[in-house]
Amino acid sequence: MTTRRGFIGGATAAGAITLLGGAPAVASDTLETGTTDAVLDTAARQRQARDAILNVNKGMRSNYAVLKSDLIKQLSPVIVVQNDAKGGKFTLVLNGTQEAANPVSEVFELAKSISHVPLGIFSVIAPYLSDRIPNLPNASRIDPHDLKMVAFKGTGNTDWTTPLQAYATTLTTARQQLERANLPLEMVGSCSRLLDAAVRFINQSLASRTFDMKSFEDFSGSVYPDIRTNMKYAADAQIAGVQGIMKTWRAKVGEEGWKDLYVVVLSQWTTSVLNQNSIIIKPCMNPAKVKTHLIDLPAVEAPSDPIFVALDNLARIVQDNIAAEMVFPVDQEVADALKGQQDLLSDEILDQLDGVTAGPGLASSAAYSGAAGAGALTATAVAAPAAADACPFHARSAQA
């Protein structure tokens, strides 16, 4: 015989599981058969009803995917830029055809190769650093928690000696061959000094079988002027190469088509704000459309099919531009959200959280509102003037 307490307890458990989307667990020794069947029947009808509702969105997504797939074939003209060690691979998509080029002189890659030497040494020794910040001029800028995570092997381990010696051999070989590389004389000088200083630091560290953050910063600080010289030559090479290919393709596309040009720049998150190629490309585009047609697309790693990834995302952007105005003709703010990078629910969520006290250790909704505003500047599809102000590097420079 079912008791009142047993019935309420069983029904409550069943209702809770049903609410979470699962089938209700009903104890046979608690409920009578008729009651169990009724509960199961109600749960089944609810699941069926909810599935019918969810199928509406599945249908939308299916139709949306078909439109996007067909639209990809119509995108033109588009330039896809893959940032790489060579200064960038550029692909022009025009009326169903593709043309690729690596327009940047090899001087760009050579200058960056030598400039990366301090980072190459750091990558070897970092796990063996002390996890305590020494008394350095920039000590306040080093996050203690980050340092502890990077210096995960500690100073008692000398396994760094073998890879560091191997890297020294690589640097020595490059130094011996430097004069034959036919580089600008000033760049030969900067590269020579940088390589010599790096080999000295490595040899001293190997001889004493020790190093620390200060000794490395003394080395890296001493070669900074030479890195700046190399950066100048790398930038010159990249500007000349990118401007050259843009001029060539502009003539091919024609002025009428060029004014509607989309450019998608694929980059890593760490270079997605004020990306070098985006900066050079921006003045080459139609000023009236550059804000919406120059798109920085950050990724974790380079995609296996970068052209498809760029066009697939661009197709979504293009169709959302039209959908936004047609689906939300009475609310321009919501339409702008669909057209841009803002999530449609973000404003509503911020409104509902406004004034709500956050839990321990969490920022208030007002703080998120401010962060959302700042984020909108840095995440906008390419380097608007406000994005430069939001750049962490510029912020640090201003503080300094």
Rank of each mutant, 00 (worst) to 15 (best):
R4F: 12
F7N: 08
I8Q: 14
L19S: 06
L20G: 10
P24T: 09
A25T: 08
A27M: 09
D29T: 11
D37L: 10
D37N: 14
V39G: 10
T42P: 00
A44Y: 08
A44N: 03
R50W: 11
N55Q: 14
V56A: 00
N57C: 02
N63D: 00
V66R: 14
L67G: 01
L71M: 11
L71I: 07
I72H: 11
S76D: 08
G88A: 01
K89G: 04
K89A: 12
L94N: 11
N95A: 11
N95H: 13
A100M: 06
S105T: 08
E106R: 13
E106I: 07
V107Y: 02
I114D: 01
S123N: 10
D131Q: 09
N135S: 10
S140K: 15
L147S: 01
T161Y: 02
L164Q: 04
L178K: 08
R180C: 01
V188F: 06
V188G: 02
G189M: 10
A197V: 01
R200P: 00
A207V: 03
A207I: 03
S208Y: 03
S208F: 03
D218T: 14
D218S: 02
F219M: 13
S222R: 15
P225C: 08
P225H: 12
D226V: 02
K232S: 09
K232Y: 13
G241I: 02
V242N: 05
V242L: 08
K252H: 04
E256H: 00
V265A: 10
T271H: 15
V273S: 12
N275D: 09
S278V: 13
I280N: 09
V290A: 14
H293I: 06
D296E: 09
A299E: 00
S304V: 15
D305G: 04
N313G: 11
A315H: 04
R316T: 14
Q319D: 09
D320K: 15
D320P: 00
N321H: 14
D331Q: 05
E333T: 13
V334M: 13
Q342G: 01
E348M: 15
I349H: 02
L350K: 02
L353A: 13
D354E: 15
T357N: 10
S365Y: 05
Y368D: 01
Y368S: 04
Y368L: 15
G370M: 12
A372L: 14
G373V: 09
A379W: 10
A381W: 10
P385D: 07
D389N: 11
F393T: 12
